[in-house]
């Protein structure tokens, strides 16, 4: 069951990821990215990260991507122009990419010791209570600094997006 679920959601993630790169219209890409995020949220659940799965849905899929879709709709962005790929990129690109995939996969398989397979429910440390406790004890300073970062981002967005007044 765990393997089957992993296969299903991994397939969804990869197909949506490929779709993101291939589609020419930004709104198709945006929805593919939402698909990737949904599939990843399910995988986080399999890995025992309840809180992160929920945060993925709330923050990424529910807020950040809605903002992207909103901007795409606001600017009424059209399809992208076909781009001219240089000949060596055309013939060398795909093999190089496959090689890159292969290398990364090989390194991961090689370096990681034979650990026990991922079973749903084997790791219970990802509950909201645990995450909250860590955030407000061990990671208190980073957490507070992040809030300053967000404040700065809000101010920056307002300054950038407001109309010129003078």
């Amino acid at each position: 069951m765990d393997a089957l679920l992993f296969m299903i959601f991994a397939a969804i993630a990869v197909i949506c990821g490929i779709n993101l790169v291939v589609q020419t219209h930004p709104i198709s890409s945006a929805l593919s990215l939402v698909g990737v995020m949904g599939a990843l949220a399910a995988l986080y659940l399999l890995l025992g990260g309840e809180f992160i799965a929920a945060a993925q849905l709330v923050v990424y899929a529910g807020a950040i991507m809605v903002l992207f879709v909103f901007v795409i709709m606001l600017l009424n962005a059209g399809t992208e122009k076909k781009l001219a790929i240089r000949p060596w990129g055309k013939y060398l690109g795909a093999p190089l990419l496959l090689l890159f995939f292969g290398m990364m996969a090989y390194v991961v398989q090689r370096i990681l010791p034979e650990s026990s397979p991922v079973v749903f429910g084997a790791f219970q440390g990802g509950t909201a209570a645990e995450i909250g406790r860590s955030l407000f004890t061990v990671y208190l300073l980073p957490f507070e600094v992040t809030s300053v970062l967000i404040l700065i981002a809000i101010l920056g967005a307002i300054v950038l997006a407001r109309k010129e007044v003078d």
Binding site: F51, A54, A55, L57, V58, A61, G62, V66, A128
Partner: peptide, 11 residues
Amino acid sequence: LFILGISGLGV
């Protein structure tokens, strides 16, 4: 949190 996430996706 699940309810909040799902209601965010409804948009």
